[in-house]
C-alpha cells in the first residue's frame, strides 16, 4: 500500500473499549483487512488482545533468546576469566561453579530484559518520528479510537456506516 493511500481513511471515536473492539470485529467481517484497521486505546488493558483475536505477541521469543544468551555469556565470561587470569589459592581448583551462578543469573536478567524492550521497540515501530494518521490527542485521554485505511469513496462510506451504527460518538473522514 502506497504512503499516499495510507493517509486516507475514516476515524471513529468511542467511549468504551468494548464498543471500539466490536467495531473492529464488525469492520473485519465487512471485508476490511486487519492490517488496515487500527484501534487506539488510552489504557493498557489486556482485553484488547482477547477482544480482537490477535495472535500472541512475539516479544516472548526475544525475552527467552536474551535470557539464554545472557546465561551463556555469564558462564563463558567467568570460566574464561578463571583460566585467562589464574589465581592459585591453596591448591584449590582454578574454576568454581557456585560463583558463576551469580554472574549467569545477573546476565540472564540483564539481557532478557533488554531484549524484551528491544522487541517492544521493533514490533511497536517506535521510536517513530511522525504520528500515524488517524490518531487524535483524545485517544491518550478519554476516548477509544478506530481508524480504517480506505482510499475509495465506497470503502469510506461503508466504514462510516459501520462505525456510526456501532455507537461511535464521532466519525471523521481523514481525507487530507
Amino acid at each position: 500500500m502506497s504512503a499516499e493511500v495510507m493517509e486516507r481513511g475514516v476515524r471513529g471515536a468511542f467511549y468504551t473499549l468494548e464498543e471500539a473492539a466490536h467495531a473492529v470485529n464488525a469492520l473485519e467481517a465487512e471485508g476490511f483487512a486487519a492490517d488496515d484497521i487500527t484501534l487506539f486505546s488510552p489504557i493498557p488493558t489486556s482485553e484488547i488482545e482477547d477482544e480482537l483475536d490477535r495472535p500472541p505477541s512475539p516479544v516472548r521469543y526475544f525475552t527467552i533468546t536474551g535470557g539464554i544468551l545472557g546465561c551463556i555469556t555469564g558462564f563463558v565470561l567467568t570460566y574464561w576469566t578463571f583460566f585467562a587470569w589464574p589465581l592459585h589459592v591453596g591448591g584449590k581448583p582454578l574454576s568454581s561453579f557456585p560463583v558463576t551462578v551469580v554472574i549467569m543469573f545477573e546476565l540472564t536478567v540483564l539481557l532478557g530484559g533488554l531484549f524484551s524492550v528491544a522487541a517492544v521497540f521493533i514490533f511497536s515501530r517506535i521510536p517513530a518520528l511522525t504520528i500515524k494518521p488517524g490518531y487524535h490527542p483524545r485517544f491518550s485521554e478519554d476516548l477509544f479510537g478506530v481508524f480504517v485505511h480506505a482510499s475509495e469513496d465506497e470503502g469510506k462510506k461503508n466504514a462510516s456506516q459501520v462505525l456510526s451504527g456501532l455507537g461511535a460518538i464521532e466519525v471523521t473522514d481523514e481525507a487530507e
Binding site: 473492529v24 487500527t38 484501534l39 487506539f40 486505546s41 488510552p42 493498557p44 488493558t45 489486556s46 484488547i48 488482545e49 480482537l52 490477535r54 500472541p56 505477541s57 516479544v59 516472548r60 525475552t63 524484551s116 524492550v117 522487541a119 517492544v120 514490533f123 511497536s124 515501530r125 517506535i126 521510536p127 517513530a128 518520528l129 511522525t130 504520528i131 500515524k132 490518531y135 485517544f139 491518550s140
Partner: peptide, 15 residues
C-alpha cells in the same frame, strides 16, 4: 511517537 494502538499495547503488555 507512542500512540497507544492495539498492536503497540499488545507487545507492550507482554514485555
Amino acid at each position: 511517537g507512542w500512540q497507544g494502538t492495539d498492536s503497540q499495547w499488545r507487545h507492550y503488555n507482554r514485555a
